[in-house]
């Protein structure tokens, strides 16, 4: 069997391994909706929406929670004893939910939008998160997200309080003021 055939087999296996329906049942059992919303759209301050999130990103983050690498107290109990399979199922479920512009999104503030656009361009946010900011694979979707969550988490990256699977975001937020981060979060939350 050639390398390509083996890879095809591996990809087929992983596609089969993730099951959104099982993920939906697990989300119900672990009460994800209480904080993240019934369809993955969060109505809770500084809690992220997960609808339409990239499955690979969600998988990696859930593993970091489970392993105690990314430490968020509210995630300790829900992650207890969760298997890789369950994590992949959950990620598939949230990825399958539609991601849409938030219904409660306020009007765009022109000054914040301009400043946010400037920061995003300067740091090439769209190189990894793509020009739509919908993300890809291990790079998260950051459009349609709660503005307060974006502001909170970007500041955490800057302050070294948030770990990812590498240190890219910590480096990228280096040197931004609170005002800069507020503008960037506003700009991202107002992407279509």
């Amino acid at each position: 069997m050639g390398a390509a055939a083996v890879m095809a087999a591996a990809l087929a296996f992983s596609a089969q391994a993730q099951d959104a329906a099982r993920g939906a049942a697990l989300a119900e059992a672990r009460n994800c909706a209480q904080c993240h919303g019934p369809r993955g759209v969060s109505d809770t301050p500084i809690i992220p929406s997960l609808a339409g999130q990239q499955a690979e990103f969600t998988t990696l983050q859930l593993i970091l929670f489970r392993e105690g690498i990314r430490r968020v107290p509210a995630m300790v109990e829900p992650m207890r004893g969760m298997s890789d399979q369950q994590i992949e199922d959950l990620a598939a479920w949230f990825a399958s939910l539609p991601s849409e512009r938030r219904a409660d999104r306020g009007p765009a503030n022109p000054a914040l939008m301009a400043r946010g656009a400037e920061i995003s361009a300067g740091r090439n946010c769209n190189a990894c998160h793509l020009p739509t900011y919908a993300g890809r694979a291990n790079i998260p979707r950051i459009n349609h997200q709660r503005e307060d969550f974006l502001e909170h988490t970007l500041a955490e990256y800057r302050d070294g309080a948030r770990v990812g699977t590498d240190t890219n975001m910590n480096g990228l937020m280096n040197g931004l003021t609170d005002g800069d981060i507020r503008a960037l979060a506003h700009f991202l939350a107002h992407q279509e």
Partner: peptide
């Protein structure tokens, strides 16, 4: 940089035959 894979890869999906 490439994303790591942090989930278990099942033995039959490991490309040892390649």
């Amino acid at each position: 940089p490439h994303a790591p894979r942090l989930t278990v890869t099942a033995p039959d999906a490991i490309p040892v035959a390649a």
